[in-house]
Each structure stands twice: as structure tokens, then as C-alpha cells.
Design a protein around this nucleic acid. Sequence first.
DNA 1: AATTTGTTATACACCATATAGAACAACAAT
DNA 2: ATTGTTGTTCTATATGGTGTATAACAAATT
Lengths: 127, 127
Amino acid sequence: MLIQIETSSDIPIYTQLSNQLIELIARGQLKGGDVLPSVRSLASDLGVNMHTVNKSYHELESKGIIRIVPKSGAVINPSIRDGISDEHRLRIVEELKPIIAEAIVLGMTAKEIQHLASSILSDMKEE
Amino acid sequence: MLIQIETSSDIPIYTQLSNQLIELIARGQLKGGDVLPSVRSLASDLGVNMHTVNKSYHELESKGIIRIVPKSGAVINPSIRDGISDEHRLRIVEELKPIIAEAIVLGMTAKEIQHLASSILSDMKEE
DNA sequence: AATTTGTTATACACCATATAGAACAACAAT
DNA sequence: ATTGTTGTTCTATATGGTGTATAACAAATT
């Protein structure tokens, strides 16, 4: 499943896992309807605890990215065609703001930041 | 100094403070050469501990945004005209990637994400 | 019938966060 | 020169998050 965990990172394991799963979905390598591995099997593959994977899955569910069906599995939600909700959009803004501010302070121009964003976007969309 | 701390937030106080200081600098309300308040006085104003402010200042210093002169104060570094360093640029990319991926998964198109970034940028640059 | 599933509970260790108090040497101001 | 402020350092404590471990449960699957 192409996931790598760095235990020495200052980013929590469950956050690393959530981020990488989100990126796999964004790249289209995981699609709506696909079923994620069970918490036990993925934990075994990654060499981490079952509860750590479980925490990541529930984080993804609270973000509206997957739904968890007890005794069955975690299923990726279909892509939303109606556009993003106001709630989700606000969360993205609050997450983007401090990073964009940091980029400005470190000397990037608006044009450079836009170009950086578009290069990240095209990198994810090309697959 | 227009800083608000929410103790009930899940974001650490020192991170809230760092983010708001960075945003003040990005907006031009704090400029290169300006001296930040002493850790004791700002801690008193915000109602938090001295060490918490100190931790925020050192985080900003490790990011290259301010320099701390012992027995003197914390001074904002002048804006970099030479452009951003590779190290800083890489950090920005790594911070942007998971958020952009999340935005895609939640149903935003590349065009919408670009528009969102530019609206945040113009909001910060207009002051 | 046996296995696997997500869930729940308890327990433990470790680290980050936040506060508190104290003391120090260097600097600025009166 | 004395006073007050500065960032620094140290110790101490409390709290919560993170991660692991083990166990048991009920529902679904095989």
C-alpha cells in the first residue's frame, strides 16, 4: 500500500498515516468505494499498534473522507461533485493561512507562492 | 499588539502565538527591525507563562524569522530580497502538500484551490 | 464452527505542554 | 552606583497526548 512511517519524526504516527492516505486518495491511487485494510492488518504491515491505525481512521472519518462500518471496514467516500462544504472550506483556509504567512515572511512573493501551489497541484493531478 | 490566545484550542499556546506573530509580520503590521515585547511583558499581557512566550520566540528564531539578542530583546529580521532559501522552500512544500491533498479529496478543483490561495494572499498584502 | 472485524476497556510508559518559582549575569536608566 | 529589566537557566509539578500492550465483546464473514 506504499506507506512509510518514520517513528523518529516529530509528526505523530497517526497523523503521518492520515496524511499519506489523503495523498493517495488525492492522487487517485485510492478511489471512492475502495475499502481500506483492517486496522489490525495495516498495523501489522506498518509495525505499529492497532489503536494507532484506528485513531487515524477515525480522524479521516471526522474529516468526512471515509466512513467506518463497524464489523465491516473503512470505505473511502465518493468524490463530492457538488463542491466543498462551507465547513470544510473554512478549515482549509485556517490551515492554509499560517503557512502562506510564513512563506511571505521568508521572502516569497505572491507569484512564487502561487507557482508553488500549482506545481504541487499538477504533481498530484498527473496520475 | 492585537494577539488573542484561546486556551481551549487544541493548538498549543506557543504555536498560536508564533502563527499570529508571523501573520502580523506578513501583513506589514510588524516590520524588519521592530523589537518584540519582552517575554515577561507579553506573557503578562496575554495571561500566560513567561516560558511559553519564550518557547514561541525560539521557534521563530529557529525558523529564521527573528533573532534573539540576550539581555536585549527579540528583533524581527529584515525581509529577504534574495528570495527564499532551498531549506525554507522545502519546508513550505512539506507543509502545503497535505493541506492541498485534503482540499482535493474534499472536492475542490485545482482552480478553486488556486483561487483560495490568491484570496488569502491578497487579503494579507492589502495592508 | 471458526475466524476476522471494529469496538471498548484497562494499564503503562513516555514526551509535550504549561505553569510556577527562583536565581543569575548583562544591560539600560535614573 | 543603585535599581530595575532583560534573556537565560534550573528545578519542580500537573496535565494531556501519544503509543504500546493485552484482553474481551458482539457482529460479520468464511
